[in-house]
Design a protein around this nucleic acid. Structure first.
Length: 800
RNA sequence: GCGGGUGUGGCGGAAUUGGCAGACGCGCAAGAUUUAGGAUCUUGUGUUAAUUCGUGCAGGUUCGACCCCUGUCACCCGCACCA
């Protein structure tokens, strides 16, 4: 059979679309399967091979599920709000709406060329007002439940993009988008109180099937720690300086305290501080540093002593000095720490630099040389002396602090509340009105969506104001509560907003009454399998679990966790083994591959190139190898009925069905394809195959290379689609061999092999091994010390 | 610094999870076919003089270790002075 991939692929893509082969049914008696992939940002550059890899995994699994009789929902949409489109609009003057539509159209047609079995009738676009209406709706629900608040805070500000960025978006002290330096600036920030859900987000991990490393990353991100709040008295005042510590048991080793330079108590007691000008000086220096710079792990600590103020160690009663340093931040804990230089590296460095006492309270290290962070016997600690168990000593100390009324057990989270506003045009408007009488007032639900006004100039306003602030007809409005003239909020939501609930909209994408119908939600949720990149397992995965759990708490969705199972694909590197990037010139365009080799070859190669979860470099020769395989596969058509099929092939066919079926479930696509290659090689050796056997193989390869599979299915004379044909079953009897070849080792080294019945008892197997010529020769003259036989696996004879 | 991961032929990667290391593919070599190139087919291909040595390195456990343990090196990802 000639492999005319261009015509074959176009032909079947057209048929699939015309017949709606991959449309999910809402009213089905079948078991459902909801497969979700992370929807793309429709950039102007178009599709990337990374997209293909990200979708190919669940593409194969979805196709297998359909053949197994499931009602499959496998949708794709577009996460289209965001800076690149807006920046492009600023540069070219083309409206972001137009740019987005163009890019989505381009992506869609490219995706269709690959033959993905997405249900294109359910596609969503986060920038569509029918979609963002519900993003705003959820925001207002959160507002009503007190999960939204506003605060004036020091924020990361990008002077070039003129936007406030969350900490997550400003890593490295550089803007995530334009890479210019971030500066600290005071701004009004809208926050979502995600910390309220910290425990629920942690507990929910017990219910879901995520890889252990993904769970570990989420747990670390949330960063729950148990410890104690301890009150230190400022000497000469009634003022309490409270600190949070995870190691209250080291309290006897506290020889100084460190406050964040911004700590408000410094201002309150400025009259008592004799060197306040020095403090202000240091504050000035700190304010110029970004949070990133402040939090670099540097040996050379900076800081200043606070003269005139000191604290009292509440357990020892000793008076200890207070310092300020930028390694302590207002944003975590209480903005002040108790320093235990003997057992904390940062405190140790600081103490050495400023000549502060170091008191050892845990035995085991040499505190003249370095801080000792390990476990050991407590010393110099009064009632804790002799304790070696960390948990016991911590509990004992907390009891003591509570007894004395100077402390209490506490919990802290590393996770911060989610900064939720951007001064940008291309995002969801925040549906809040600022009324001089009523304050912040949400827009009534029936008035949603709050539409983005049409405008021409998308440059941010002066001082980083949102471009929307320039649109008077948008800004000026009437308070929905009291009717007085009011102003609209002009900031928009971040890109994470739309992607926090998109999987719910696929379930009912055209519903005008609700974000999705309850019965449909009940049928389809949870997502059975969610695949995406490792880079999203903290931010997006936590944000969307948070939104979903909120919707669950207010009774809008049926189950408590959105994603039952999560997996992640690995990167595709350039042919040079480096991460693909335009600047390196090592980017592979999937469209070129489809043009030259066809979609089936592209799909096959991407899944064959290596472990799906690991990074692997692109190889043009590897692509050619897959093309060769598909051509050989198509060539099987010419071998039908050329002779009697041997039992070996029959058994191999069943083994292959078994292996491919189980490998797909484990996302071991590379070995599934290898198994099919091996079988095809064997068939070529045999020179013949029956029509029914080929029909099995065609269905087996269908999820990987659906176009050629459909074409062969039709040529074989079957009606209907291979894509909807029944997934092949295997006969367990034909998978089990009657004889097994097992290795015979002498002293752990393989010296020969024997073939024995699989169910032969150990004694017989050992006897057979000894009877083997080679083995007998080696054993001749030696004393057998031990004989090990694992039936069906191995014989090992230890001899001297 | 903390957390997670990876390390196997010339290359991408397999290995039933403690039981014959190198499946499958690429590349390479020889041969066939072809006017030639390309394509295709056949055979071979970790290494060695070896019954040798071989899964980053050094130890350990075990009859037996790519797999488990201890130490160590290198690289990748995430978080980052988190108290």
């Amino acid at each position: 059979m000639k492999y005319d991939f261009k015509n074959i692929e176009a032909k079947w893509q057209k048929k699939w679309e015309e017949d709606g082969v991959f449309h999910a049914k809402d009213d089905s008696d079948k078991k459902k399967f909801y497969a979700l992939v992370e929807f793309p940002y429709p950039s102007g550059a178009g599709m990337h091979v990374g997209h293909i890899k990200a979708y190919s995994g669940l593409e194969v699994i979805s196709r297998k599920r359909r053949m197994e009789g499931y009602n499959v929902l496998f949708p794709l949409g577009f996460d289209a709000f965001g800076l690149p489109t807006e920046n492009y609009a600023i540069k070219t003057g083309i409206h972001p709406r137009k740019v987005t539509d163009t890019n989505i159209a381009k992506f869609t047609s490219q995706m269709k060329r690959v033959g993905f079995s997405f249900d294109w009738t359910r596609t969503v676009d986060t920038t569509n007002e029918d979609y963002y209406k519900w993003t705003q709706w959820i925001f207002i629900k959160m507002f009503e439940k007190g999960l939204v608040f506003r605060d004036k805070t020091l924020v990361n500000y990008c002077p070039s993009c003129k936007v406030v960025l969350s900490n997550e978006d400003s890593q490295g002290g550089k803007c995530d988008i334009c890479h210019s330096d971030i500066v600290q600036r005071s701004k009004d920030v809208w926050y979502l109180r995600i910390t309220e859900y910290a425990d629920k987000l942690l507990e929910g991990l017990n219910e879901v099937d995520y890889p252990a490393n993904v769970k570990a990353q989420q747990i670390n991100w949330i960063g729950k720690s148990r410890g104690a709040f301890v009150d230190f008295t400022l000497s000469g005042t009634d003022e309490k300086l409270t600190v949070y510590t995870t190691r209250p048991d080291t309290l006897f080793g506290v020889t100084f305290m460190v406050m964040a330079p911004e700590h408000p108590l410094l201002d309150k007691y400025r009259d008592q501080i004799s060197n306040f000008s020095e403090i202000e000086n240091y504050r000035d220096i700190c304010s110029k540093k970004t949070e990133f710079e402040r939090t670099q792990l540097v040996k050379d600590k900076t800081g200043a002593r606070v003269d005139g103020l000191s604290a009292v160690n509440p357990v020892s009663g000793k008076e200890i000095p207070i310092y300020i340093s930028d390694y302590v931040m207002m944003g975590y804990g209480t903005g002040a720490i108790m320093a235990v230089p003997a057992h904390d590296e940062r405190d140790y460095d600081f103490a050495k630099k400023f000549g502060i006492d170091i008191v050892e309270v845990i035995k085991g290290g040499n505190i003249d040389e370095a801080a000792y962070a390990g476990d050991g016997e407590m010393i110099n600690s009064d009632f804790l002396n002799g304790y070696t168990n960390k948990k016991e000593s911590i509990d004992r100390m907390i009891d003591n602090l509570v007894e004395k009324g100077i402390g209490r057990a506490g919990v802290q989270y590393k996770m911060k509340d989610w900064a939720f506003n951007r001064q940008r045009y291309w995002g969801e408007p925040i549906p809040i009105v600022h009324c001089p009488h009523c304050g912040m007032t949400p827009i009534p639900y029936e008035d949603l969506p709050l539409r983005l006004p049409d405008m021409e100039n998308f440059e941010p306003g002066e001082g980083g104001e949102s471009p929307l602030a320039k649109v008077e007809s948008f800004v000026n409005c009437i308070c929905p509560k009291c009717g007085a003239p009011a102003k609209r909020e002009t900031d928009t939501m971040p890109q994470w907003a739309g992607s926090s609930w998109y999987f719910l909209r696929y379930i009912d994408p055209h519903n005008a009454e609700r974000f999705a119908d309850s019965d449909k939600l009940k049928y389809w949720m949870p997502v059975d399998w969610y695949n995406g990149g490792m880079e999203h397992v903290t931010r997006h995965l936590i944000y969307s679990r948070f939104w979903y759990k909120f919707l669950y708490d207010i009774g809008e969705v049926p189950v408590s966790e959105p994603y039952a199972k999560r997996t992640a694909q690995g990167l595709i590197l350039g042919p040079d083994g480096e991460k693909m990037s335009k600047s390196k010139g090592n980017v592979v365009d999937p469209n070129d591959v489809v043009d030259t080799y066809g979609a089936d070859v592209l799909r096959m190669y991407i899944l064959f190139m290596g472990d799906y979860g690991a990074a692997a470099p692109w190889s043009e020769n590897g692509v050619k190898g897959c093309k060769r395989f598909i051509e050989r596969f198509a060539g099987l058509m010419d071998m039908i009925g050329q002779g009697a099929v041997t039992e070996v092939i029959d058994s191999d066919l069943h083994k292959t069905v078994k292996k491919v079926s189980s490998d797909i479930e484990e996302m071991k696509f590379n070995t599934a394809i290898a198994a099919m290659m091996s079988l095809v090689n064997k068939i070529y050796d045999a020179g013949s195959i029956t029509k029914n056997e080929l029909a099995v193989l065609v269905r087996l390869i269908c999820p990987f290379a659906p176009h050629i599979a459909e074409e062969m299915w039709e040529k074989l004379g079957f009606s209907g689609y291979a894509s909807l044909a029944e997934w092949p079953k295997f006969d367990e009897n034909k998978v089990v061999d009657s004889m097994a070849e097992i290795a015979v080792q002498i002293c752990g080294k393989v010296r020969g092999t024997i073939t024995v019945p699989v169910d032969a008892p150990a004694s017989e197997v050992i006897a057979a091994a000894k009877a083997n010529e080679k083995i007998a020769a080696i054993l001749d003259g030696k004393t057998i010390i031990k004989e090990i036989c694992v039936p069906g696996r191995i014989v090992n004879i230890v001899a001297k």
